[in-house]
Amino acid sequence: MSARIANFDSYEFRQALGRFATGVAIVTTIDPHTKAPLGLTISSFNSVSMDPPLVLWSLQNTSTLLDIFLKAERYNIHILTAEQMLLALEFSRGTQEERFSHIDFSYNEFGIPKLAEFCTAAYFECYNKSQYHEGDHHIMIGQVERCSHSDYMPLVFHAGTFDLTPNSPQKNDTK
């Protein structure tokens, strides 16, 4: 048996997916040639397994960083707080140099950029375990080697925009 042909277009599909609220994260690694820090904003993060500890995220096939992340030995995933909308936007545009020019970061023991711990909701250091090409994205599976978390509220992405009030009533509430 095979899959049926979709009865919707890409716009309608994106709108339907947007009804599932997700967290927002920044993934970092280094350029293997220059050792410069690299990073990008994602909203496609999920747990896979507790034992071993695995997480996944996905990256568009058209990303200029795809080849680097496919070959990277390690990367770090930083779950952003509700106060970090501007940081999420900065890491989704501009040059790599601009993205790291005015943020507080260090390098972990493997030389991978790590945002300051005080400013993230959670943090995962990952070994790049496997990747799968599916459709217009690559699914990246990371084996978590280190993690930490804070009590900060996470930044939420919903219906194509950031939602700074994850505990607020529904936007369509007409009371």
Rank of each mutant, 00 (worst) to 15 (best):
V55P: 03
V55G: 05
L56H: 05
S58W: 00
N61Q: 12
T62D: 12
T62Y: 04
S63T: 01
L65D: 13
L66N: 09
L66V: 06
L66Q: 15
L70R: 15
A72C: 13
A72L: 08
E73N: 13
Y75R: 08
I77G: 00
I79N: 01
I79V: 06
L80C: 00
L80M: 01
A88V: 01
L89T: 11
F91H: 10
S92I: 02
Q96C: 03
E97Y: 03
R99Q: 04
R99F: 01
H102R: 11
H102I: 00
I103Q: 02
S106P: 11
N108I: 10
N108P: 07
E109N: 07
F110R: 08
F110E: 10
K114V: 09
L115T: 04
A116H: 14
A116L: 07
E117P: 03
F118K: 14
A121R: 05
A121T: 09
Y123W: 11
Y127A: 13
N128F: 04
H133E: 05
G135I: 06
I139K: 04
I139E: 09
I141W: 05
I141N: 05
G142I: 03
V144F: 13
V144S: 05
V144Y: 14
R146F: 13
S148H: 11
H149P: 01
H149N: 12
Y152R: 11
Y152K: 14
M153T: 08
L155R: 01
L155P: 00
